[in-house]
Nucleic acid binder design. Sequence first.
RNA 1: GGGCUGGUAGCUCAACUUGGAUAGAGCAGCAGCAUCCUAAGCUGAAGGUUGUGGGUUCAAAUCCCAUCCAGCCCGCCA
Length: 560
Amino acid sequence: MFEQDIIQILEKSVKGEVKLEVPPDPKLGDFAFPCFSLAKDFKKSPVQIAQDLAKSLHKPEVVDRITATGPYVNFFLHPGKVAKNIISEVLKEKKRFGSKDEGKGKLVAIDYSHPNIGKPFHFGHLRSTIIGESIARMLECRGFKVARLNYLGDWGTQFGAMIYAFLTWGNHKDLDKEPIKYLVSLYVKFHAEAEKDPALQDKAREWFVKLEKGDTQAVELWGLFKSHSIVEFKRIYEVMGAKFDSYSGEADSARQVEEAIEHVRKKGVTELHEGALIVRLQGFEAPLMLRKSNESSTYASRDIAALLFRVHELHADKVLYVVGHEQAQHFQQLFALMDILGHPKENFMHVSFGLYMTAEGKLSTRKGRIVLMEDVLKDAISLALKTIQEKNPDLRNKDEVARSVGVGAIVFGDLLNDRVKDVQFDLKRILSFEGDTGPYLMYTHARAASIVEKAKKQKLKPSADVDFLTLKHVTEDRVVKLLAHFPDRVGDALQQFKPHVLAQYLIELGRAFNEFYHACPCLQEENEELKKARLTLIEAARQVLENGLYLLGISAPMEM
RNA sequence: GGGCUGGUAGCUCAACUUGGAUAGAGCAGCAGCAUCCUAAGCUGAAGGUUGUGGGUUCAAAUCCCAUCCAGCCCGCCA
């Protein structure tokens, strides 16, 4: 907001579009204008131009001073005026600070989490769940309506394989004991055996055909696997605090596949190839298969049906898929086909993310190389509880806070880095509570909350009606300026669908707050005006930390 | 063979979309901070040929080309 004032002033002296930068070091100023590109027009050196501009520019209201440093014109905002402006706004807006209504009237459907039934909930699903939830919250914050879709992987040849494996090697007694682990062991055995005897793949396909045709035995087993799985998923979602608007999965889409295929066929782009129905898409070597020669549906056809449903029935303006990078090509093809069907591909986006890697390679259910989400959650929460018992044994709601901290550590650990990169699986780092971590931010928030709480005993409350000009310390100024950046950073993060932009900002804010905390005691301050101003700044920072953590899907405890 | 990502400090990463000032954090290791609002914190020193080679530019970690390395996709799997 202050940026616009400066740009307006500059545009009077300089031709063309003015773009401001933020200097690398706050000591250089709050905004900078580089003069390199003006050298030709002015026939002077950039350094000279900067000096001339710094002298001649008329200062906007919020600007304290303008200086020339080398080829840059640097603008310093007036600390007190900025503080008053921003802190009062945060106090007034509270949880809404950072929100806008740019998405008003638009519906965005987000497809995320989507675990596969009969398989454990692992770190791949975790990434999708965490990234998807964060994006959903950011969209809501900017005024969009959001449909959270958990498109369960509950259909396909793999379930033919699972049914075959169960009938061949399995029994109900072992299934009831530890359903998911047992199903996984059968699935791993199936793939090991299939390496030796490829004919097993045909068995899997046969059983999937039976399943699609409604064979009683197949449908019953499938239903059993599915219900066992959903029990496990819901347990995990409850711990993580995730909620979905729909659990409609591939099996539901399978029922709409014929209708979808008819829709595609009308465009005249389908053809038969060795008995299978395919679409050849320009720019892709591999065709998209809509129906196998044995008449069963395909992943692609079910996805087309699901997407058409989301566009036609759900009336989504935009559909996001939070799915691993390995499916990039699939989505390019899917969106290209939608374009042919008259739905511009700009309305769809594959929000891809890298894979979790172990030293042995990619996590793979087939090869039995899995990390169970439930185990990691348990570890994180019990470690948090242990830490609380050491550091704050008198805390009342220990279990609840431990849960928040444990989950927050995992969520933040995942969101701190750019989602496109593969992630080295490192339990020790996930469970670390120091440095650039979720617990660091939660702790910072709790510190701030604790001061505001203690101030009540001195009959002090944060209030915008204080003299912010008393805030003169460099650490106070730093926190204020960072608070002012929050709304923009939310916008940046959302524009790229990259929560790490916001996560990185929060770390910066948290660090600035802790520096201020150490340098500027509040409650012991003797100057009453300064004390009140600091208290109000602390509350504003606490509020922004809470809002930011919320947008990442993390709760902010008042004590820990 | 075709395609998509990524390569930055000992380790994990940020900055790359939109080129700009001295390439920033955390972890590990080193030296410190406790009569004082929560030490899950703070301060300091140390740590770099941004994979390599070209090109564009006043200016390149950032854009372009080539090349090497790593991961992934190209299955009547999902």
